[in-house]
Amino acid sequence: MNESVANPSYAHGRWLGALWVLLALTACGHAPGLPTEAARPIVIGQSQLLPSSILGGARRINVYLPPGYADASRRFPVLYLLDGGEAEDFHHITGLAQVVAFNGKTQELIVVGIEGVDRKHDLTPPSKVPGDRELLPTSGGAEAYRRFLVEELQPWVAAHYRTTGRSSLIGESLAGLFVTETFLRAPTSFDDYIAISPSLWWEGEALSHEAASLLRAQDFRGRRLWLSLGNEGGAMQSAVDRLVGSLTDAALPGLSWHFEPRPDERHDTIYHPAALTALRALFPVSEP
């Protein structure tokens, strides 16, 4: 006897099972009788190795070009992203760069991500504090890394992409320390600096203690600094407060700076919301 006739619940169960199989196949693109498309990669950028005589080896550079780059008559500012590898912050920041430009109120940007090799070495200046050297034993390579960015990477970008000549540097945590140190010690390296929750605790807050004298010694005309800090407390908070105080007291002509406290964010949550706000603030579209 046909079991589906003798047992209606059995027939109902088989019907439901067949329906679920059909739905699953449809979701996977393999439903019987429906056309299929071969999987294709989703491409958001270009990646290549850039040889460096300064660093003694090649570094991987990831480049995001905005949709408007298809117009060969247009040029774009460049955002240099520290920790810019595919497994680091490249996807996050290029996504923000795309989002902020959607509404037409924010400029489109070329994003150049520098993939980290040993960030504890590349992003820190040498420290005289024994505890720092014990914590980060490979630290101290910031000066050479800065030379690589300015002397090798920036000319390579200018030679291969249509840029406006305006350059910005963004980083968080140790990368934020590097951004802040570059701003204070070599301000002409970039036009704009975005430092988010910078690790200014490094070397007993030495950089923040030097900030006042460094601000007096350098030419900051035409530079912009966008600084943000999460709910950090301790040496992070005191060092940033000291830096903000030095910036306020210096009142340097031609320097534009902004401090955005974010007590609602932790060290591990601040990067996205702070970067989003910074990009909107620093790269507005000029009204016609």
Rank of each mutant, 00 (worst) to 15 (best):
A142F: 08
D241I: 12
D264N: 04
W15D: 13
G104C: 10
L49G: 15
G140Q: 06
R14H: 14
R185Q: 07
P8S: 07
A72H: 13
L82A: 04
F283Q: 06
G45W: 01
F76K: 01
A97G: 03
W257D: 07
S238G: 11
S208L: 01
G116R: 08
A159Y: 10
V117C: 14
A6R: 05
E3P: 14
T94Y: 10
A239T: 00
V117D: 11
L200C: 03
A38G: 11
R60M: 10
T124H: 03
S4G: 13
L184H: 00
H209S: 12
W20H: 15
K105E: 13
A211Q: 05
I170K: 07
G230W: 00
H258D: 14
T277L: 13
L225G: 06
D118P: 09
A6T: 09
L207E: 00
H30D: 13
I93Q: 05
A250K: 01
F283E: 03
L55R: 10
F259Y: 11
S52W: 01
A38L: 11
Y161E: 04
P67T: 04
R185K: 09
V100W: 00
P253L: 05
P32N: 08
D83T: 03
L229Y: 03
A6P: 04
W257N: 03
L215K: 05
I54C: 02
D71I: 04
